[in-house]
């Protein structure tokens, strides 16, 4: 807001969102989608943003991506204010069917953004495409068209395109909301493994609490629109996560309950008028925070899915 001293590249946070506000001005009526968002994301972090549906999550993400100008507030990425889509950023959209070029093969889709980078020669470009496709498990379908693939595989292509672009920050807008539950579990693990391998910063927007807790190092809980940051939950689960073990651990259940309680609160009340705390039925008690995961599996809400998840 008042800070003109930008953080030094490398020392400060990679992404800084300060007092972001976005009002859509319509004819005679304006809608305040985002009221006041302030948070930052450090380099190499995996931060999940979760909020009730219609919470302005997509608006937030589009502002960060430079696709929408904010009404007020500041967006600083790598020390530079965001004024248009920044070069070191890749985005994976929810609508995989509409974000891939249907007239291009998988390989051409991944390669097209790289062709805009003048510094890459053809051999290097091809190498990046091959590596990215291999990283998402699609090495053997470079010549297929997106519409020949299932939804989960199309989203893998979109992910490969983002990875090949070698971004510093990867924005994901509910990327797995439209794929089935089992494919989704695989894609979640894929995101975590890519993140660990590449060291890229990821901002992952979702409406799914389980997904947010499972994936993130931090979970930002947003209120209903007009949006505020309600809570910033640190996820202290072990770095090595797996669908079966992690999701059935006691700690996972607690964190999930904590976020769930916040979301319920957000849905129940306007952000300007905070409601009384958490639903008593949920074990949202902070005293449980240090309990051993193996102790009380019976207290834990059942994991969202378990079939096929341990196969990796």
């Amino acid at each position: 807001m008042n800070s003109t001293a930008l953080p030094q590249a490398g020392s400060g946070p990679l992404l800084d969102v300060r007092a972001l506000r976005k009002v859509y001005a319509g004819r005679g009526r304006s809608v305040e989608a985002v009221r006041d968002l302030t948070f930052s994301v450090g380099a190499g972090e995996l931060v999940c943003v979760v909020g009730p549906s219609g919470a302005g999550k997509t608006t937030l993400l589009k502002c960060i991506a430079g696709l929408l100008p904010p009404t007020s507030g500041e967006l600083v990425l790598e020390g530079a204010p965001v004024q248009g889509p920044p070069p070191g950023m890749a985005v994976v959209f929810q609508e995989y069917g509409r974000s891939l070029f249907p007239w291009m093969t998988v390989q051409q889709n991944v390669e097209l953004p790289l062709k805009q980078k003048k510094s890459l020669d053809k051999a290097r470009r091809r190498q990046l495409v091959r590596d990215a496709l291999a990283a998402v498990g699609l090495a053997d379908v470079p010549d297929a068209y997106p519409w020949q693939l299932s939804g989960g595989m199309q989203q893998r292509v979109a992910l490969a395109r983002a990875v090949a672009y070698e971004p510093h920050i990867l924005l994901m807008d509910e990327p797995f909301a439209a794929v089935d539950a089992q494919t989704r579990a695989d894609l979640e693990d894929l995101v975590r493994s890519l993140w660990q391998r590449l060291g890229v910063t990821i901002l992952f927007v979702t409406h799914d609490i389980d997904e947010a807790v499972y994936l993130g190092q931090r979970v930002l809980v947003l209120s209903a629109s007009p949006t505020l940051v309600l809570d910033d939950v640190a996820i202290d689960l072990p770095a090595e996560r797996d669908q079966l073990g992690t999701r059935s651990s006691a700690r996972f259940g607690e964190l999930r309950a904590k976020v769930f309680g916040q979301i319920q609160r957000a849905k129940g009340a306007r952000p300007t008028d905070p409601a009384p705390p958490t639903d008593p039925a949920l074990p949202a008690d902070p005293e449980h925070a240090d309990s051993d995961p193996a102790d009380s599996p019976a207290d834990v809400p059942p994991p969202r899915q378990s079939t096929d998840a341990g196969s990796r």
Partner: peptide, 8 residues
Amino acid sequence: ETCRCYGI
């Protein structure tokens, strides 16, 4: 938007 994001 994809094109804008990827500098196409």
